[in-house]
Computed example of a mutant assay.
Amino acid sequence: MSLEREIAGSDGSLLHRRMQRVRAFMGRHPLFLLLYRALVILLGFLCILAGIIMLVTPGPGWLFIFMGMSLWGTEFHWAHRLNLWARAKVLATWRSFEAARHRRNRRKTAQRWAKRSNHSHYCPSGCHYRISKPGR
């Protein structure tokens, strides 16, 4: 489950801590805060727009949409809540995909095992199960 580990580790990363310090500095200077908010809104909008374009053209569209929503999530509470909801849905989908893949692989292994004439041990390559025909 490396996806879950990566998501969990991103909240306390070095970049996240630096951005909190920059945000605290901006909070003490009204002009910088206004410029910062305008820049965040503009970059978030551009990321979301690029992501929407990349949905119909080659490129990582959903990644850019989530990046734009994450940027907006630093300024807008509704965007942060939407991002948390989307993260939960992505993780749930990922877990169900992994579980289905695991079930499919176990089913294939069981089918291969059932076809074997020698059931005393399992050999993935199948080299021990070749039956030589008489006369060869």
Rank of each mutant, 00 (worst) to 15 (best):
M1S: 14
V90F: 08
Y36A: 13
D11C: 00
E98P: 13
V22R: 10
H80Q: 12
S13R: 08
T93G: 15
A38I: 03
R106P: 02
V40Y: 06
W85Q: 05
R17E: 09
A50T: 10
S13K: 05
R103I: 01
R112S: 02
M26T: 11
G73A: 10
W113R: 12
R18A: 08
F64R: 14
G73M: 03
P30K: 02
S132Q: 09
S10P: 03
R106K: 13
M69T: 07
I52L: 15
W78T: 10
G44F: 03
S70T: 07
G68D: 01
R101P: 06
M69F: 08
A86P: 08
L33M: 07
N118T: 09
H77Q: 07
L84H: 14
L34A: 15
S125Q: 09
Q20G: 12
A86C: 09
Y36T: 10
H128P: 07
G9R: 04
W85E: 01
P134H: 00
S70R: 00
P30S: 11
L91C: 06
T57F: 10
N118Y: 04
G135L: 06
A99M: 06
A114T: 02
H121Y: 11
F32N: 09
Y129D: 14
R23V: 00
S117T: 02
R104W: 06
L91M: 10
P134K: 00
L3M: 12
A8G: 04
A24K: 13
R130F: 04
P60F: 00
L55E: 06
S13W: 04
L33W: 03
L71W: 03
T57L: 10
H29Q: 01
L49D: 06
C127F: 10
P58D: 09
M19S: 13
R18Y: 04
Y36F: 15
V90R: 02
R81T: 03
F76D: 08
A114V: 01
S125H: 05
G12Q: 12
S125Y: 02
G27Y: 02
L84R: 14
K115T: 00
R18C: 07
A88H: 15
S70C: 07
A8W: 08
R87Q: 05
M67E: 08
N83F: 09
L43G: 03
H102T: 12
R107Q: 14
R104V: 07
W113C: 01
A79R: 06
Q20R: 15
A38Q: 05
S120K: 14
E75K: 04
V90C: 12
H16F: 08
I131G: 06
L46M: 05
P60Y: 00
F97G: 10
A38W: 00
A88M: 12
N118D: 15
C123Y: 04
G73E: 05
L34P: 14
T57N: 11
R107P: 11
G68R: 02
M67S: 12
H77A: 02
R130A: 05
H128W: 09
G44W: 02
A100Y: 01
H102S: 12
T93V: 10
E75F: 13
L55H: 11
T74R: 13
R81L: 04
A50G: 06
